[in-house]
């Protein structure tokens, strides 16, 4: 018998296909808070307007036993069609988008643009004393970029949280 105390915590990215009906997000979030599970990030939007499907991508962490519980608990919610653990069901692509506002002039301003170029961030808004960069990538890459912007006049960050999809021809 496995003892959950000795099990290590791991992070998982889980995709949940749900009916886009009122309260469905509250149901999912309430499940996590009510049962004491972690949410590291959560994104949701409608992905099939015709069939009214929304897709929730949630990054969570826990022991393997807790992670199995999370999936089983999600799966039994009435409006849930499918739960897929992208971290273990084969390779997946994970991406996050960040909008990063940096204010400054002179050398700092030039430096921020240079780093943005290295990271392939796009400038989506600018004035003489600020830039807004748009950047897509793995969350870790976004972390590094935001870190580098800190001394250069970082003002504001907005991030989407992780969205993910499995590699290969198969759908959810």
């Amino acid at each position: 018998m496995a003892n959950h105390k000795t099990q290590v915590t791991e992070s998982r990215t889980i995709a949940v296909l749900v009916d886009n009906e009122p309260g469905v997000l509250a149901r999912v979030i309430g499940l996590f808070s009510g049962r004491g599970y972690n949410i590291e990030s959560l994104t949701v939007t409608e992905v099939d307007p015709r069939q009214r499907f929304s897709r929730i991508t949630v990054v969570t962490s826990g022991t393997p036993q807790i992670l199995e519980q999370i999936k089983a608990q999600l799966d039994r919610l009435v409006p849930v069609h499918r739960v897929s653990d992208l971290s273990i069901e084969g390779p997946a692509v994970e991406r996050e988008l960040a909008l990063v506002k940096v204010a400054g002039t002179g050398e700092k301003r030039v430096e921020s643009l240079r780093i943005a170029d290295i990271f392939r961030a796009r400038v989506v808004d600018s004035s003489h004393d600020h830039f807004i960069f748009e950047m897509t990538g793995k969350s870790e890459k976004l972390d590094v970029f935001i870190d580098l912007m800190q001394p250069l006049g970082l003002v504001d960050v907005s991030r989407t949280g992780v969205v993910a999809i499995s590699r290969g021809p198969q759908g959810l």
Binding site: M1, A2, H4, Q65, E68, Q69, A72, Q73, D75, R76
Partner: peptide, 21 residues
């Protein structure tokens, strides 16, 4: 029941391996 093999029949998958593996 530390020395038993356990079979668990349940209609709710979330009841399985929740408290006891």
């Amino acid at each position: 029941s530390p020395r038993s093999k356990k079979i668990h029949v349940d209609i709710d998958a979330s009841s399985i391996n929740k408290n006891v593996m």
